[in-house]
Nucleic acid binder design. Structure first.
Lengths: 338, 338
DNA sequence: GTGAAAGCGCTAACAG
DNA sequence: CTGTTAGCGCTTTCAC
């Protein structure tokens, strides 16, 4: 390469990296560029990184790449943002297995990654695997008691906004099908639900919240109890619960949204956008979580005093909520397109 | 490190890599291991790779990591298999953008990846991006006219098996809601459907296949036409179509599977396993595609003479198919668990 | 302006 | 059995 252009290798290095303040003769530069073309030369990133002591890699270790269909969105967001700053994502899936986790971390550390994102497929507290903190790291969709920055979804505001979609349409007796699984999602969404009620001066009635298995079967099973409660609207812990609920109320001859308004959570595209009627919900911002993770890692975004960066769960109104009073129709939403 | 153990750096190298035929004194070895412990020493993979001229990376460039919820499974399968052989996945998402594609390839090539997997989110023919063939590469879920090994799902056998699930239960007048999108899936599944009919000596009736938009809305819209046809079973191009169909037939007072048996395609967990009744379908083996991709890349699996390795789409019987004759009940399937 | 030389952390002969 | 040496392909002073 250097000889092809008849210059020294340092000259080549200088023109390739476009070093400022490097005085290179016009023809030398031209010869180098031409040689690059002709030889199809590619700089060896390995060597480059070796010299600088650090690579352009960002590691992402996930406990489950695919358990939930949209967890892939974390990868997606992380990869896009990393790419934007000239970094590449190195991914490792551990299935929660500690050995795999240790091995994955070792491998990343040995490759001198710029930093590591540790992510989980559902929002929860985690114990930090040893080794993680040897590099810069940030937790994505999880958090720990240790002093490591974390990026998490704002469950509470999500729950609040979901409930508010119902309240705004005049509903005052609103059921909440929460999950039976103890989790930040369980607590946060409930807190949001209560806050929304309080803001509307609606008394919180514990009988209106039913904990169910967080999937279609759970939603379906809750229908009889829910109907007995005489609610006019219901906030479901997630879209899957809402999907099961749809099946149940349909069998009971109850129409959505005319007889019962429903709101989900997650905005799981495959389901929410294609139910009949399309489901109003609140989005779990997986893409944004991945994105924010690398931004925090690179020092582009700051976490709060509590070491957390909360990402909003934006409401996605669709057709499953309508007003109680005649004439009030849910408007078509941008999110309904597809 | 070397000095801490009071040995030469080559000795360190030898014990770390556990070189066979390398005679190392017991105490020297012990000293080295101890020094590793104490210093928390990590070999620099960058340097190691530089020497050998190739890294332990396998690149995966995808046109869409997340467009379809289960495309992430390709990454998952590839990552697991790569990991098993001591490789790490380097992922790049291009959204089909050519510049991004070129950049991604360049980056991978510069990192001297062992090889590159080029994958698409739906099975189709692709034009190879320039640069791809500079490294070993294999196409995953896509194929090209060029001489590059490809790993693709066996659409035809999938279509055949789906149809056969219906035939085995005594159905002879079977509708097929195919997609309007021209694609290997369209053609392959149709061919499989016809082959299954032929094997059962059922005449192919073109009127029984209706092309619909491949989602819930498409399935729903096809219901009236389908019912008019008087079929007793229907094979849907995918699970989403089946989901829409469920809604439509329910409104028409037609029960699944009693009045109409239905089979889907894809085995999109979130949907198929949780519909009422759970949907019998055929799985699109994304995980296996990713896995096979790296196996072919590493020379562990061979492609056929046509340069293709076809991966089976295994049937997943659930509750949406029942026999026509009384007493014939679809058996509970392993796939039905969750 | 450009080249020579040292060195990043490691492996692989080759000596001893 | 273990140390010495010469690179891997690049960046970075520092001379010329």
């Amino acid at each position: 390469m250097a000889e092809a252009a008849k210059v020294s290798i340092s000259t080549v290095s200088l023109v390739i990296n476009n070093k400022v303040g490097a005085r290179i003769g016009d023809d030398a530069r031209r010869r180098v560029q031409q040689a690059i073309e002709e030889l199809g030369y590619r700089p060896n990133a390995l060597a480059k990184d070796l010299v600088s002591g650090r690579s352009r890699f960002i590691g992402l270790v996930a406990d489950a790449i695919a358990t939930t269909p949209f967890a892939g969105q974390i990868i997606h967001g992380a990869q896009d943002e990393a790419w934007r700053h000239g970094f590449v994502l190195l991914v490792a899936n551990t299935e929660g297995n500690e050995d795999a986790e240790r091995e994955a971390l070792a491998m990343m550390l040995e490759h001198k990654v710029r930093g590591i994102l540790y992510s989980t497929w559902y929002h929860r507290q985690v114990d930090l695997p040893t080794g993680l903190t040897e590099a810069d790291c940030v937790l994505v969709n999880c958090f720990s008691t240790a002093d490591v920055p974390a990026v998490v979804p704002d469950e509470e505001t999500g729950g609040h906004d979901a409930t508010t979609m119902l309240i705004e349409q005049g509903h005052r007796r609103i059921g909440f099908l929460n999950t039976t699984t103890p989790s930040p999602a369980h607590d946060g969404r409930l807190a949001g639900y209560r806050r929304a009620l309080a803001e509307a001066a609606i008394d919180f009635d514990p009988d209106l919240v039913i904990d169910v298995q967080p999937d279609q079967e759970g939603g379906y099973a809750a229908v009889p109890a829910l109907l007995r409660l005489g609610v006019s609207g219901v906030f479901c812990h997630n879209d899957r619960v809402a999907m099961g609920l749809y099946d149940g109320v349909r069998e009971a001859g109850v129409a959505v949204p005319a007889d019962l308004a429903v709101v989900g959570f997650d905005n799981q595209e495959v389901i929410a956008a294609h139910l009949r009627p399309p489901l109003s919900t609140v989005a779990l911002p997986h893409y944004e979580l991945g994105q924010a993770g690398v931004r925090v890692l690179l020092g582009l975004d700051e976490v709060g005093d509590d070491g957390r960066l909360t990402v909003a769960c934006p409401p996605v109104p669709r057709g499953s909520v309508a007003g109680l009073r005649p004439g009030v129709i849910a408007e078509p939403s941008p999110g309904a397109a597809r």
